[in-house]
Simulated scan of single mutants.
Amino acid sequence: MIRLVIKVIAAQVIRALDDVSGFRDTYMDALEELIEAKAEGKTPAAPKTERKGGGQVVDHDVRTRAVRTEGQGIPRRER
């Protein structure tokens, strides 16, 4: 029974991978633009990058020590 389930799942994955119409090769697009710009003697434009909001920097070592010392009468370091 398990082998049958695995075969069905494998077939679904293969079918899903065959349909690449929803994907676009942006690397090749950027490479073609770069080559065309260089061939025309132009300075290539800087790459376009997407930045997703900045994250919060966490000092995990301090957090770990704080968790270990909770309830042991040792005061936690204030932020």
Rank of each mutant, 00 (worst) to 15 (best):
M1Y: 09
M1F: 10
M1T: 10
I2D: 13
I2M: 11
I2Y: 08
V5N: 08
V5D: 10
K7Y: 00
I9D: 01
I9W: 03
I9Y: 06
I9E: 04
I9H: 02
A11E: 02
Q12T: 11
Q12F: 14
V13R: 10
V13D: 06
R15F: 05
R15H: 07
A16Y: 09
L17T: 08
L17S: 09
L17D: 06
D18G: 11
D18S: 10
D18M: 11
D18F: 09
D18I: 08
D19V: 11
V20Y: 05
V20F: 02
S21C: 07
S21I: 07
S21P: 01
S21T: 15
G22P: 04
F23W: 10
R24N: 05
R24G: 01
D25W: 14
D25E: 15
T26M: 12
T26K: 13
Y27L: 06
M28G: 10
D29I: 11
D29K: 10
A30T: 03
A30S: 08
A30C: 00
A30W: 01
E32N: 14
E32H: 08
E32K: 13
E33Y: 03
L34P: 01
E36K: 10
E36D: 11
A39Y: 00
E40G: 01
E40P: 01
E40R: 10
E40C: 03
E40A: 14
G41E: 07
K42G: 02
P44R: 02
A46H: 13
A46L: 15
P47F: 05
P47L: 09
P47Y: 02
K48F: 07
T49C: 07
T49A: 14
T49R: 14
R51Y: 13
K52R: 15
K52V: 14
G53M: 03
G53Y: 04
G54Q: 15
G55F: 03
G55T: 12
G55H: 03
G55V: 06
Q56A: 12
Q56D: 11
V57P: 01
D59K: 05
D59M: 04
H60G: 12
H60S: 13
D61H: 05
V62P: 00
V62Y: 01
R63Q: 13
R63A: 14
T64E: 00
R65F: 00
R65I: 00
V67W: 02
R68C: 06
T69M: 02
E70H: 06
G71M: 07
Q72F: 05
G73K: 04
G73E: 03
I74E: 08
P75S: 03
P75Q: 00
R76L: 13
R76F: 01
R77A: 09
R79K: 09
R79E: 15
R79F: 11
